[in-house]
Design a protein around this nucleic acid. Structure first.
Lengths: 207, 207
DNA sequence: TACTGTGAAAAACTTCACAGCC
DNA sequence: GGCTGTGAAGTTTTTCACAGTA
């Protein structure tokens, strides 16, 4: 599918709309207007309509959107209609929390491989997944894993990323607080927990 | 300190500049130009200068910025020059990983209290911090804790937030995937790990 | 010379307003 | 009547270009 130039912010919001729609779907609600969806997510209605209009016309004037149908359209746009096997690299505190995180499955995102460089951890089995040595990363291409979650210490992050990229990984969710150099064909989304927390005091009332 | 209207994105970037400056400082580098800092963080030089110019003139034409001095200015702007006591609510997988997360301390952010509603966890001591019952949240004001990290399940998040707000908390780093209703005086920053990961497949090459 | 600080220009994004359709 | 889809207007943010300074 080929669309025009889409703002990155639109893609970010699309995954938020999806979160809202999944909720409505589970509540058994079948139809929703842009106003009602906006209210649930604290966003604004024309933006939802504009964002969706980049990709097509999914609603019915006078009625709104069918929840299930719109959900599937967004899944198509975000390429979430088939399951994506994902590798988790780094099985420390954060890594093991992420492995148990239940939030990924509604999006069809499955952690199917775990890597670490600590021999004390290698070979352990968690939920049927065995922790493998990082040297095995090179097999990811063969195993058709193109997404990775990076939860290693900052000083190992670039080196590990290079290995992942060489092994054919094309998307990285990075938890290390630094800029990762990657070829253009690879997308990195960084979650920097500490700098996010560090923004909060700014908004505290003076005194 | 009273500044003009500052874009939220500027504040976000400021905490990133700080990350870069902390790195340079530890490397013993004393001076940096906007170009050099931009390179290290993969940002662009005029934006750094513009962002800083909202708050004052911290550099020297022809030379650049003194790393330590600029670091302190940014700390002042973000109110990070004194330590902020922070409460962690939810001591599950994610919560316990966050308690051990080493990245907060360079920003002067200290987790000093941990709450959970699971009696099996209450009373446990980790790094000298005892897990307390969520009912104790009401004492936060007395303890001068105005920041909280929320790592509870989505279905408990709003209710817990209400308690935090009532107890005087003014900033929340939220890991639950939903929009939290709070009074205007309270700032919420949400990290939604699953919807972030869910954006990656969009960028995968077709096929 | 080399770099900052900044008004002005450009670009990007959001919001509006309404024609068109159910 | 009510809601979508969208071109156009409005707003915000980013980038530029250069005057000014150490």
């Amino acid at each position: 599918m080929r669309y025009g130039r889409i703002p990155d912010e639109t893609i970010r919001r699309l995954s938020t709309y999806m979160r809202g729609l999944v909720g409505l779907f589970h509540e058994g609600i079948e139809k929703v207007s842009s106003t009602a969806l906006a209210e649930a997510l604290h966003m604004n209605p024309p933006q939802i309509r504009k964002d969706l209009s980049y990709f097509g016309a999914f609603g019915t004037p006078g009625v709104g959107y069918e929840v299930e149908k719109l959900l599937n359209h967004i899944k198509d746009i975000l390429k979430l209609n088939n399951t994506h096997s994902t590798a988790l690299v780094g099985f420390g505190n954060l890594g093991s929390a992420l492995l148990k995180y239940p939030g990924f499955s509604p999006y069809g995102l499955d952690i199917v491989a775990v890597f670490d460089d600590d021999s004390a951890k290698i070979g352990k089995k968690i939920n049927g997944i065995e922790v493998e040595d990082v040297s095995r990363i090179k097999d990811l291409e063969k195993r058709e894993i193109r997404l990775a979650i990076l939860a290693v210490p900052a000083n190992a992050a670039q080196e590990t990323t290079d290995k992942l990229v060489e092994a054919g990984v094309r998307g990285v969710l990075n938890f290390a607080p630094l800029y990762l150099k990657v070829p253009k064909k690879v997308k990195v989304i960084t979650i920097d927990i500490a700098t996010d927390l560090a923004r909060l005091p700014y908004y505290l009332p003076a005194g």
